[in-house]
Write a protein that binds this DNA or RNA. Structure first.
Length: 392
DNA sequence: CATCCACAGGAAGGACGGGGGT
DNA sequence: ACCCCCGTCCTTCCTGTGGATG
């Protein structure tokens, strides 16, 4: 045991053994060049360029699945744009899913243009008009990037976008251009046609990376990130294949490589082998699940816990009964079946359970519900929750 | 082949706790 | 002090429905 601790500390003192530049595999890292994205880079640059001589760039809509380089390319182009030192140009970048609400999206936008707003209390309209006032006052040339814009529209509607797209007369001498980034290729469907036509003055699609392309991307990153000989071609190929088999997700592939490197380092290996990658992949999945559960509200956890009582899966009625019992035992308030039904839908969306509607003819329609996660993880997290510890 | 079960899931609204402007 | 806004969870009321069964 002591030996183990000594070894850990010793290695820590040695500093990074395998990594030369850990940051090169972090999600925020913007590489020198982005392979296989020349066309997209050029187009975006061309669309945005007019801002440098004070005219309004067309609004731009970027499509593509996760990890296809949309955000990276956009950031890359914007950083180049700003490096010119054009002081009137302001770039605001907001990831609407991370911002999580319409208000916080606006608040982040406000902060980027230099308006201070309280983190709650104002109406969204008030925040918008303060932002506009500020832009007009300073005559700023603003490029607003709305990452995961499909989330914004899906959850809060497109009214904000409508206001943005038709704000330009009010902003003179300032201006506002939108860059929307969407993971969802069908997101245009639900959009107000006026917003759509304005928002997609220009469009650009990001195709998924092929496994071959992922190999090259990983290879380049690995060269900067690791010391020589740490990440073999075989290791890189495996990472690319494991992460990219579904839809060419570069972010996943890079995460996987990074974590595999950390595993190798922790285990005192000199290079990344297949086992490291396998372990890294498991760890990523495990972390995702654990974090998802931990941040759940009590009632949602309770429903999840009730689900875990049925090894063979169950249906809504049966589950609701089990849930009710569980609540009584733990002293948690019992919610209506309607609400529990809603919670089940949320859990399904999170991929923690599988719930699909089935019809049993005259014996009604219900949901077939099945737990998708290991009970050990569940038990561990539930026992952390004071309200539920007894039931875990 | 109409019926009817056991729910699904939409709509509207409300309690509550965060916090405003004036 | 007063009235306001927002987000989060929740309830109430409701209409809709796939397909085994009688």
């Amino acid at each position: 045991m002591e030996d183990e601790i000594d070894r850990i500390f010793y290695r820590a003192k040695q500093g990074k053994i395998l990594f030369a530049n850990h940051g090169a595999l972090s999600p925020e890292y913007i590489p020198e060049k982005l392979p296989f994205r020349d066309q997209q880079t050029t187009v975006i640059a061309e669309v945005l360029a007019p801002v440098l001589h004070g005219s309004r760039p067309s609004n731009l809509l970027l499509y593509g699945k996760t990890g296809t380089g949309k955000t990276a390319v956009t950031r890359y182009v914007l950083s180049k744009l700003l490096s010119g030192g054009e002081s009137k140009v302001v770039v605001a970048y907001v990831n609407t899913r991370l911002a999580n609400t319409e208000y916080r999206t606006l608040a982040e936008f406000a902060q980027a243009v230099g308006v201070r707003v309280p983190f709650t209390g104002l109406s969204t309209g008030e925040v918008t008009s303060r932002i506009f006032k500020e832009i007009q006052l300073r005559g700023n040339l603003v490029i607003l990037v709305l990452d995961e814009i499909d989330y914004l529209v899906k959850t809060f509607g497109d009214e904000v976008l409508y206001e943005f797209t038709r704000s330009n007369e009010r902003l003179l001498p300032g201006l506002l251009s939108l860059v929307g980034i969407s993971n969802d290729l069908k997101f245009k469907e639900g959009l107000d046609p006026r917003v759509l036509s304005s928002l997609s003055e220009e469009e650009m699609v990001f195709p998924p990376y092929t496994v071959e392309e992922l190999k090259e991307i990983l290879g380049e990153r690995a060269q900067t990130a690791f010391k020589p000989g740490v990440a073999s071609q075989a290791a890189i190929n495996l990472c690319a294949a494991m992460a990219g088999s579904e839809h060419g997700d570069a972010r996943r592939a890079i995460d996987l490589l990074r974590i595999a490197g950390e595993v190798a380092e922790r285990e005192g290996l000199k290079e990344i082998d297949d086992m490291c990658i396998k372990k890294a992949s498991d760890k990523m999945e495990h972390d995702r699940v654990e974090e998802a559960i931990r941040s759940l509200p009590v009632q949602t956890k309770a429903v999840l816990l009730a689900t875990s009582k049925f090894k063979e899966g169950t249906n809504t009625g049966e589950l609701y009964l089990a849930y009710t019992t569980l609540c009584r035992r733990t002293g948690i308030e019992v919610l209506t079946q309607r609400r529990v039904s809603g919670i089940l839908a949320e859990l399904d969306l999170l991929g923690l359970i599988e719930a699909s509607v089935v019809s049993k003819g005259r014996r009604g329609r219900t949901k077939r519900i099945q737990l998708l996660i290991g009970e050990q993880i569940l038990g561990k997290i539930m026992s952390e929750d004071t309200a539920l510890a007894a039931a875990a």
